[in-house]
């Protein structure tokens, strides 16, 4: 194994993790075996079902055993191993579901109301990851605008914009989002919550991007090509258009790093009861019920969203934190061949 290949495996693993989760989130409506808020009677805290292929010693197409509520008070379930329930593939617009309407396929078990945790996890991924991406794009947009303006204008504009940036940067992000969310009406429809959270994330996260863009543009402004453009009569906006491409590599890295930060922020806000509602849950909403000690003892599988969150953050860290990949992100997108930046400034 060559050293370069050895250093690349974390990146490959990270990309695989993030890519798989993103794909699953995109395909959630067809991949989820059940509806997200569909309640199944007598399936509260039901344990995850095991998909099996052996029945009485013979090989069969994948099937599950029916769950029977053995003790209603203690919520104990046992498997009825006498009759296997075959899985149905590509039926009713779903990739896989149970062939028997009375036996829902609960791959990650049931929650307190007998809803399918696996299906909720998949639909929740769309909300959690969607609002994260929307917020990250917004943050990069505002950050580029403010940072680009401050860096290319300099002087008083620069100082004023950077004062605001530094002030917001010093505040802890989760509190900033919490306070801003808290002072709006508490009950809102799902679409409004999505837009609101994305806007709040963009607002809380732009200062970091602005700082970076400003630093890069302020250096570029003093380069010869910028001087030449000014001498040729380029106005402020034309000049900014020439300077901005220098920040592309930084923005790519920033985008990658914003995803885990905002995903954690979404989970926190929803977990505190100020995000998505229980009917259309995000990962944070699902954790509200899962985090009680009682639920942990009875149904630890309800913590699945926490595990999913960990996998996304780990995947992104693996992609972003290895020096090799950071270099490819930076150099690969930079408008000059690598090494061109080494030229000393006047």
């Amino acid at each position: 194994m060559t050293p370069s290949r050895k250093r690349r495996w974390p990146v490959v693993l990270g990309l695989t993790l993030v890519g798989t989760i993103a794909l699953v989130a995109l395909l959630a409506p067809v991949l989820a075996p059940n509806g997200a808020s569909e309640m199944f009677p007598d399936r509260a805290y039901a344990p995850p079902m095991r998909v099996r292929v052996f029945h009485e010693g013979s090989l069969r197409a994948p099937f599950v055993y029916r769950q029977v509520l053995a003790d209603r008070l203690m919520r104990e379930y046992r498997e009825d191993t006498s009759a296997p329930v075959p899985l149905e593939w590509f039926a009713n617009g779903r990739v896989v579901s149970s062939g028997d309407a009375t036996t829902p396929l609960l791959l990650l078990g049931g929650d307190a109301l007998g809803r399918d945790i696996f299906s909720r996890l998949l639909t929740g991924a769309r909300l959690s990851l969607g609002v994260t991406l929307a917020g990250a794009l917004g943050a990069l947009f505002i950050g580029t605008l403010v940072g680009g303006l401050a860096g290319s204008a300099g002087g008083g504009t620069d100082s004023a914009l950077m004062f605001v940036t530094d002030f917001l940067l010093a505040l802890p992000g989760a509190y900033l989002v919490l306070v801003l969310r808290g002072f709006l009406p508490l009950v809102l429809s799902q679409g409004v919550v999505f837009g609101l959270l994305a806007a709040l994330f963009a607002f809380a996260a732009w200062p970091h991007a602005a700082r970076g863009v400003r630093a890069i543009v302020a250096v570029e402004r003093r380069r010869d090509y910028a001087e030449a453009a000014r001498a040729l009569g380029a106005g402020r906006f034309r000049l900014a258009a020439h300077l901005m491409p220098a920040a592309r590599g930084f923005l790519a890295v920033e985008a990658v790093l914003l995803v885990p930060a905002l995903l954690v922020a979404e989970t926190t806000v929803s977990y505190l009861g100020l995000g998505f509602t229980d009917a259309n849950p995000s990962w944070g909403t699902m954790l509200i019920d899962a985090a009680s000690l009682n639920a942990m003892r009875q149904a630890p599988w309800m913590l699945a969203p926490a595990a999913a969150l960990f996998l996304v953050v780990l995947g992104v860290q693996l992609v972003a934190s290895t020096p090799a990949s950071r270099q490819t992100l930076l150099v690969g997108k930079a408008p000059w061949p690598s090494g061109g930046t080494a030229e000393p400034l006047k």
Binding site: P260, V264, T267, Y271, A290, A307, L309, L314, L318
Partner: peptide
């Protein structure tokens, strides 16, 4: 990569 919330839930 382990957010404090996830860490707290895992420890609990």
């Amino acid at each position: 990569a382990c957010p404090p919330l996830v860490g707290a839930l895992a420890l609990l």
